Deep mutational scan, measured.
Amino acid sequence: RTAFSSEQLARLKREFNENRYLTERRRQQLSSELGLNEAQIKIWFQNKRA
């Protein structure tokens, strides 16, 4: 289980509010910017949509 920092969570929530689905390219960008792997971001979005 991933423990996200408050900064990472704030960024993910802001991104989710703008778009509930990420393109592969956007997921790669977020992964690089947040220091998370793409799978972690993908799962976070899946869980948030559920």
Results as ranks from 00 to 15, higher is better:
residue 48 K to T: 12
residue 46 Q to T: 07
residue 24 E to S: 14
residue 28 Q to I: 10
residue 45 F to I: 02
residue 37 N to S: 15
residue 12 L to C: 04
residue 31 S to C: 08
residue 48 K to Q: 15
residue 39 A to R: 09
residue 46 Q to M: 10
residue 25 R to F: 12
residue 9 L to P: 00
residue 1 R to W: 13
residue 28 Q to D: 04
residue 15 E to L: 04
residue 10 A to Q: 09
residue 33 E to K: 03
residue 12 L to K: 01
residue 49 R to W: 12
residue 26 R to H: 06
residue 44 W to C: 03
residue 50 A to Y: 05
residue 34 L to V: 04
residue 29 Q to E: 11
residue 15 E to D: 02
residue 23 T to V: 03
residue 11 R to M: 07
residue 15 E to N: 00
residue 41 I to T: 01
residue 26 R to M: 08
residue 48 K to V: 06
residue 11 R to E: 06
residue 6 S to W: 09
residue 5 S to P: 02
residue 13 K to H: 15
residue 33 E to R: 02
residue 25 R to W: 07
residue 10 A to F: 06
residue 28 Q to E: 09
residue 47 N to S: 10
residue 3 A to E: 15
residue 45 F to H: 01
residue 32 S to T: 12
residue 46 Q to D: 14
residue 7 E to C: 07
residue 20 R to D: 05
residue 46 Q to R: 12
residue 15 E to K: 01
residue 15 E to S: 04
residue 32 S to H: 10
residue 9 L to F: 04
residue 16 F to C: 03
residue 28 Q to K: 15
residue 37 N to T: 15
residue 21 Y to W: 09
residue 48 K to N: 10
residue 41 I to Y: 01
residue 48 K to C: 07
residue 26 R to K: 12
residue 38 E to Q: 06
residue 38 E to F: 04
residue 6 S to L: 10
residue 19 N to P: 02
residue 21 Y to H: 10
residue 16 F to D: 01
residue 3 A to K: 12
residue 33 E to H: 04
residue 41 I to P: 00
residue 34 L to W: 02
residue 1 R to G: 14
residue 38 E to H: 04
residue 44 W to T: 00
residue 43 I to P: 00
residue 42 K to P: 00
residue 27 R to L: 15
residue 36 L to H: 01
residue 26 R to D: 05
residue 3 A to N: 12
residue 32 S to G: 07
residue 10 A to R: 08
residue 42 K to M: 12
residue 18 E to V: 07
residue 28 Q to P: 01
residue 44 W to L: 02
residue 36 L to V: 10
residue 5 S to V: 03
residue 3 A to Y: 14
residue 27 R to P: 02
residue 29 Q to I: 11
residue 11 R to V: 11
residue 19 N to Y: 06
residue 12 L to I: 03
residue 24 E to H: 11
residue 45 F to E: 02
residue 9 L to E: 10
residue 38 E to N: 03
residue 12 L to T: 00
residue 27 R to Q: 13
residue 24 E to Y: 08
residue 25 R to C: 09
residue 45 F to L: 03
residue 27 R to T: 15
residue 5 S to Q: 03
residue 22 L to E: 05
residue 25 R to D: 12
residue 22 L to K: 00
residue 14 R to P: 01
residue 42 K to G: 08
residue 43 I to C: 11
residue 42 K to S: 14
residue 49 R to F: 09
residue 47 N to Y: 11
residue 25 R to S: 13
residue 33 E to L: 05
residue 29 Q to R: 10
residue 50 A to F: 10
residue 22 L to H: 01
residue 34 L to T: 07
residue 28 Q to H: 10
residue 3 A to T: 10
residue 50 A to N: 12
residue 27 R to I: 15
residue 17 N to Q: 12
residue 42 K to V: 15
residue 5 S to R: 04
residue 34 L to F: 02
residue 2 T to R: 09
residue 8 Q to E: 03
residue 8 Q to P: 01
residue 20 R to T: 05
residue 29 Q to A: 12
residue 25 R to Q: 13
residue 36 L to S: 02
residue 27 R to E: 09
residue 36 L to W: 02
residue 41 I to D: 00
residue 45 F to W: 15
residue 40 Q to K: 06
residue 6 S to F: 11
residue 38 E to T: 06
residue 11 R to L: 07
residue 45 F to D: 01
residue 27 R to C: 14
residue 35 G to H: 07
residue 7 E to L: 08
residue 34 L to Q: 01
residue 46 Q to E: 14
residue 40 Q to A: 13
residue 3 A to C: 09
residue 5 S to H: 03
residue 17 N to Y: 10
residue 18 E to W: 06
residue 46 Q to A: 13
residue 16 F to Y: 10
residue 5 S to Y: 02
residue 16 F to A: 02
residue 47 N to D: 12
residue 4 F to L: 11
residue 3 A to V: 12
residue 13 K to F: 10
residue 21 Y to L: 07
residue 10 A to S: 09
residue 37 N to Y: 06
residue 30 L to Y: 01
residue 3 A to S: 13
residue 4 F to K: 02
residue 47 N to V: 10
residue 7 E to R: 07
residue 15 E to V: 05
residue 37 N to A: 13
residue 18 E to K: 13
residue 31 S to H: 02
residue 5 S to F: 03
residue 31 S to M: 05
residue 25 R to Y: 11
residue 17 N to G: 08
residue 23 T to I: 02
residue 15 E to C: 03
residue 9 L to W: 05
residue 28 Q to Y: 08
residue 7 E to D: 10
residue 24 E to R: 15
residue 30 L to W: 01
residue 31 S to K: 04
residue 9 L to C: 13
residue 14 R to W: 08
residue 31 S to Y: 03
residue 42 K to Y: 09
residue 21 Y to C: 09
residue 21 Y to A: 05
residue 2 T to V: 13
residue 48 K to L: 07
residue 40 Q to W: 11
residue 33 E to W: 04
residue 26 R to W: 03
residue 45 F to G: 00
residue 50 A to T: 08
residue 22 L to G: 02
residue 29 Q to G: 04
residue 19 N to T: 05
residue 1 R to V: 14
residue 3 A to L: 10
residue 44 W to D: 00
residue 29 Q to K: 08
residue 2 T to A: 07
residue 48 K to W: 09
residue 20 R to Q: 13
residue 31 S to Q: 05
residue 21 Y to N: 07
residue 13 K to S: 12
residue 27 R to W: 09
residue 7 E to Y: 10
residue 33 E to P: 00
residue 37 N to P: 15
residue 19 N to C: 10
residue 24 E to G: 09
residue 50 A to E: 11
residue 23 T to K: 03
residue 35 G to K: 06
residue 9 L to N: 05
residue 26 R to I: 07
residue 33 E to C: 03
residue 43 I to W: 15
residue 18 E to A: 09
residue 35 G to I: 03
residue 3 A to M: 08
residue 2 T to D: 14
residue 21 Y to I: 11
residue 4 F to A: 02
residue 9 L to D: 05
residue 42 K to D: 15
residue 1 R to L: 15
residue 34 L to N: 01
residue 44 W to V: 02
residue 1 R to M: 15
residue 44 W to Q: 00
residue 13 K to C: 14
residue 32 S to Y: 12
residue 1 R to E: 15
residue 44 W to P: 00
residue 13 K to Q: 14
residue 16 F to Q: 02
residue 2 T to S: 07
residue 8 Q to H: 05
residue 49 R to E: 08
residue 50 A to L: 08
residue 25 R to N: 11
residue 7 E to N: 06
residue 2 T to C: 14
residue 41 I to E: 01
residue 17 N to V: 08
residue 42 K to T: 14
residue 5 S to M: 03
residue 5 S to E: 03
residue 39 A to C: 13
residue 1 R to T: 14
residue 14 R to S: 10
residue 11 R to T: 07
residue 12 L to Q: 00
residue 45 F to R: 01
residue 21 Y to Q: 07
residue 33 E to A: 05
residue 43 I to V: 10
residue 10 A to N: 11
residue 50 A to I: 10
residue 35 G to V: 03
residue 36 L to F: 02
residue 18 E to D: 07
residue 42 K to E: 15
residue 38 E to V: 08
residue 43 I to M: 11
residue 28 Q to R: 11
residue 10 A to K: 08
residue 7 E to V: 07
residue 44 W to E: 00
residue 48 K to M: 15
residue 19 N to V: 04
residue 30 L to E: 00
residue 27 R to G: 09
residue 24 E to A: 13
residue 6 S to T: 12
residue 23 T to Q: 04
residue 47 N to I: 13
residue 50 A to D: 11
residue 13 K to A: 12
residue 50 A to K: 14
residue 31 S to W: 03
residue 21 Y to S: 05
residue 39 A to K: 12
residue 7 E to T: 10
residue 9 L to S: 04
residue 25 R to T: 13
residue 41 I to V: 07
residue 31 S to R: 03
residue 9 L to V: 09
residue 31 S to A: 13
residue 23 T to F: 01
residue 36 L to M: 07
residue 23 T to E: 04
residue 20 R to N: 12
residue 23 T to R: 03
residue 23 T to C: 05
residue 32 S to K: 14
residue 2 T to H: 14
residue 6 S to E: 13
residue 26 R to E: 06
residue 14 R to E: 13
residue 43 I to R: 12
residue 25 R to E: 15
residue 37 N to E: 14
residue 38 E to W: 05
residue 17 N to R: 11
residue 12 L to D: 01
residue 49 R to D: 07
